[in-house]
Design a binder for these strands. Structure first.
Lengths: 223, 223
DNA sequence: GCGTGTCTGTCACCCGTTTGTCACCCGCCC
DNA sequence: GGGCGGGTGACAAACGGGTGACAGACACGC
């Protein structure tokens, strides 16, 4: 599942991101409110974690804006003892809250619960057509073939493509999704990753039938 | 769509940003010229709103620099009564202008118009008459014929002509829209591009039936 | 701690496609 | 005839995707 983590505290943000990634989630990070909204619009996450105190726009404003456009689950991060903030957040449509400090274990439990409540159990294999991903096993199965083991990056790339199965995904977006940041110039990384993935999943890597190069990026052919 | 808003007046900047976000756009904000260029490079916005009076670099300079690198639509924000500034801005390649003060409604209408003109209001296939463009696949289909693959430039040219289907578009405008920079003398580029496009889409390239030469430029015959 | 194997980032290179540029053609008009 | 502007063919440079090689980073078992 794709999770948007918005917190202006870089250390905490990285800790959360790391914890979620370890659990097999894709993470999009934002350091302030506007960035959170930007990524929300661009990435379409399945879950949003929002700190209340952020520069630019507060978590409240971000939550409100998101709620005006989507019913994606939103979890607020609050400092203990600011109950009035909490009430306000829930009133704005937030689904859950977590008081700092919290343990990674607590975080994961709450995230899992929230995703389950939203009907997106995170361990369910992603699938489209003849392609199915097993996020826990880090494997992909195509048609009747044996499941193939994937590395972390390969898994993320496939996950992104699978989420847009049949449609081209542009390289910039893939770079952001798979590596997190990296502005422009890193096409080479993507080339290599695609190459390595093709070696694993294509019957004939020289003539890709599944992971095709499209005019505007790469796409998955699922039939 | 992602919009870069550059204005040194923080209040106005926030108002514009808010208005655009309400309309579903992603907004990147800049308070001066250098920041605008920095964000332009990093974010790759689909539209740029530029105030003329900004510290660091003026809107003129920013516009010129952007035009040297991109054909992204640029809208200038001017104070009423400074027509000479306006003329200068349009000469530098700006696509539209807005005189302050303006209402949010006006702003949105202009932004929408500009994005439509630039052919990016959606990735849905553009069509007019028997001609339809698939922006994702980079193909064009004319009548019942097989879709034809287009290069990046051919696609842009066709997109511009299709946006004005049935009417002639003058060469200056096409040069700016397709190549972004290149003020005057580069007719030859356009000639070649038209030639190559005709080879691909015309049944008889020597007697063009679709992409016709008109008195004032080129036009697409769509019926 | 240490070796081992895997994963990832980076480099150099190949090759087909795309693009920019030049020379030249033709028809038209003064 | 000569200038002008559009159309055409040819060619070289630039670009971009694909590939193999390699070294450092990393995880893991001992």
């Amino acid at each position: 599942m794709k999770v948007l983590v918005a917190d202006d505290d870089a250390d905490l943000r990285e800790l959360i991101a790391f914890t979620l990634m370890q659990a097999g989630h894709l993470v999009v990070k934002a350091g302030d409110g506007p960035a959170a909204l930007r990524h929300f619009g661009a990435e379409g996450p399945d879950l949003v974690l929002l700190d209340i105190n952020m520069p630019g726009l507060s978590g409240f404003q971000v939550c409100e804006t998101i709620r005006a456009r989507s019913r994606v689950p939103v979890m607020m991060l609050t400092v203990r003892g600011e109950e009035e903030d909490l009430v306000r957040a829930l009133g704005l449509g937030a689904d859950d809250y977590l008081t700092k400090p919290f343990s990674p274990r607590t975080l994961l439990a709450r995230v899992k619960a929230l995703l389950r409540r939203a009907g997106m159990e995170s361990t369910a294999p992603l699938a489209a057509g003849r392609i199915s991903l097993d996020l826990e096993e880090h494997t992909v199965r195509i048609g009747a073939a044996e499941p193939v083991r994937l590395t972390k990056l390969e898994l993320r790339l496939l996950q992104m493509l699978l989420a847009n199965a049949g449609h081209a995904v542009n390289p910039e977006r893939l770079l952001i999704q798979v590596w997190g940041h990296r502005s422009g110039g890193d096409r080479q990384l993507l080339k290599q990753l695609v190459h390595r993935l093709r070696q694993k999943i294509e019957a004939d890597p020289a003539a890709p039938a599944v992971l095709r190069t499209a005019a505007a990026g790469y796409k998955l052919v699922v039939d």
